Simulated scan of single mutants.
Amino acid sequence: MLQVLVCGVVVFPGLFFTFRKVLPSIFKRWTDADVVLVSERLVSSIHAIMATTAGIIVVSSCKGNVMMDRHWLATYFVIWYGVPYMSYDIFAMYLSHYYRFRVKGHKDYKSHSLRTVNSFVRKEFLLVLHHIALLTILLPVTLFFRKDQGDYFIGCLFLTELSTPFVSLGKILIQLGMQDCWLHKVNGGMVLLSFFMCRIALFPYMYWAYGSHYGIPLYSAPFHLPLATNLGNLCILSPQVYWFVLLCRKGYRLYKRERDSQNQASPLSSPEPVSDSSKAD
């Protein structure tokens, strides 16, 4: 019974429902869209902290033999929390999309319908595809196809969630009107650093760790793996690279806007007056 109560099927929707009830009493001027967005981000951060913690435990426990060492969290975290969270998060993202457009007064968003669902899928297609890919790739690989090997690499995949709390904090700070404070700037740097290290550089590292186990160089590691494994990694890595490029562009725009505002705010030095002494001569 206790296992059912702490399972992600109960925990994540329960936290989301709780935040939706509590936040309006604290931030009375927030719209439904504000409340749903922040609630979704808070739950995402909680899941990310859980996944990162599980990843650290699995990786540190299986670093002796990256192929054969086992840890029960590599499998059970995916079952208890990974799959329930990904399923819940699709629904939470839809609610955030729905209320955002409803607050803006779009006529199609007076009530839930197939049209609003279709609009959400088209607008957030890459995110939805990412979640579905994890459900259809990571889950079968974890449970059936890896033959009780590679817990270390499952733990590494858990570590990809390390950047999520920073991404969520950035959106929450914007929601609170604190986008110009130093915390938002520092957090922006942490978003780029953690995203690059844990969602992009992590994949070459896993190939290197696999190659080191078998005594082969990094460039040969992909050819030592089944095609399905490489394709699965590519499906997970590709959207991460795309999102990282978007984050870099956004960071550059913010930096450029701040620099331009500082240049406009600083007084221009007045030119020295030209002396008329030469004319007097």
Rank of each mutant, 00 (worst) to 15 (best):
Q3T: 10
Q3L: 10
V4W: 05
V6A: 06
C7F: 13
C7K: 06
F12G: 01
F12H: 03
F17L: 15
F17E: 08
T18G: 05
K21C: 09
K21V: 09
S25L: 10
W30N: 01
D32S: 14
D34P: 10
V35P: 04
V35R: 01
L37W: 09
S39H: 08
V43T: 03
A48G: 02
A48C: 05
A51P: 09
T52G: 11
T52I: 06
T52L: 05
G55D: 02
I57L: 12
M68F: 04
A74H: 02
T75I: 08
Y76M: 05
F77E: 00
I79A: 13
Y81F: 15
G82F: 08
Y88A: 10
Y88L: 08
Y88I: 03
D89W: 02
H97W: 05
Y99T: 02
Y99M: 03
F101I: 01
K104D: 07
K107E: 12
D108W: 04
K110E: 12
S111L: 08
H112C: 06
L114S: 09
S119C: 07
S119K: 01
F120I: 00
V121S: 00
V121I: 04
L127Q: 02
L139V: 06
T142W: 05
L143P: 03
F144C: 03
F145D: 01
R146I: 08
K147P: 04
D148E: 13
G150I: 08
I154C: 06
I154M: 10
C156E: 10
F158C: 09
F158K: 01
F158W: 15
L159C: 06
E161D: 07
P165K: 08
G170F: 04
G170N: 07
K171W: 14
I172W: 10
Q175A: 13
L176G: 12
Q179G: 10
D180N: 11
H184C: 13
N187M: 04
G189P: 05
M190H: 10
L193C: 13
F195A: 01
M197L: 15
A201H: 11
L202D: 02
M206E: 07
W208M: 06
A209L: 09
Y210H: 09
G211L: 06
G211R: 01
H213F: 10
H213Q: 05
L218M: 13
S220D: 11
A221T: 06
A221P: 02
F223W: 13
H224D: 12
A228I: 11
L231F: 11
L234D: 01
L234N: 03
P239W: 07
Q240T: 06
V241G: 11
W243F: 15
L246N: 13
L246G: 10
L247P: 02
L247N: 02
R249P: 07
G251S: 07
Y252Q: 10
L254P: 03
L254Y: 14
D260H: 08
A265V: 05
S269E: 12
P273L: 13
S275N: 09
D276H: 14
S277F: 13
S277E: 12
S278G: 15
K279L: 11
A280P: 05
A280Q: 09
D281R: 07
